[in-house]
């Protein structure tokens, strides 16, 4: 299990690929029907699906009970249908504050030409 002590600020943690398919869009829109209007591009809300799938794949051995405390996103462009993207995960920083273990990750999603599509910064309270 990855503990707070294991996480090193500035460390590249890994990357994951994602293909934006019609099937995934349909699954997303089953939960959020309003997002059907975004086609043929990815609805902006779906960036969380790209980001969290990369995060859970790279950080698969994380402790149970982590709490998501804050989130930033900056969007340059949203993927088109069938586009393959790649998300790189980095530990931006960590801090022990009032007996809570705060960890911030950055997630940069790029296209096939390595151009940044969107960036997420996720702050969590690490459970162990």
């Amino acid at each position: 299990m990855i503990t707070f002590d294991d996480l090193q600020p500035g460390a590249a943690l890994g990357q994951a690929s994602f293909v934006f398919t019609q099937d995934l869009l349909d699954q997303w829109c089953a939960l959020y029907p309003d997002d059907r209007a975004a086609g043929p591009h990815m609805p902006a809300a779906m960036v969380v699906m790209v980001m969290m799938r990369a995060y859970t794949e790279v950080m698969h051995d994380r402790p149970p009970g982590n709490i998501h405390a804050g989130q930033k996103f900056r969007i340059a462009r949203l993927p088109a249908l069938h586009e393959q993207v790649k998300t790189r995960l980095t530990c931006m920083g960590k801090e022990l504050k009032r007996e809570r273990r705060w960890v911030t990750f950055s997630m940069d999603t790029v296209d096939a030409a390595d151009t940044l599509l969107f960036r997420g910064e996720m702050t969590t309270i690490w459970a162990a």
Binding site: I67, A69, Q71
Partner: peptide, 8 residues
């Protein structure tokens, strides 16, 4: 170009 910053 949109930027979002929220806390839970």
């Amino acid at each position: 170009g949109l930027e979002l910053d929220v806390r839970f």
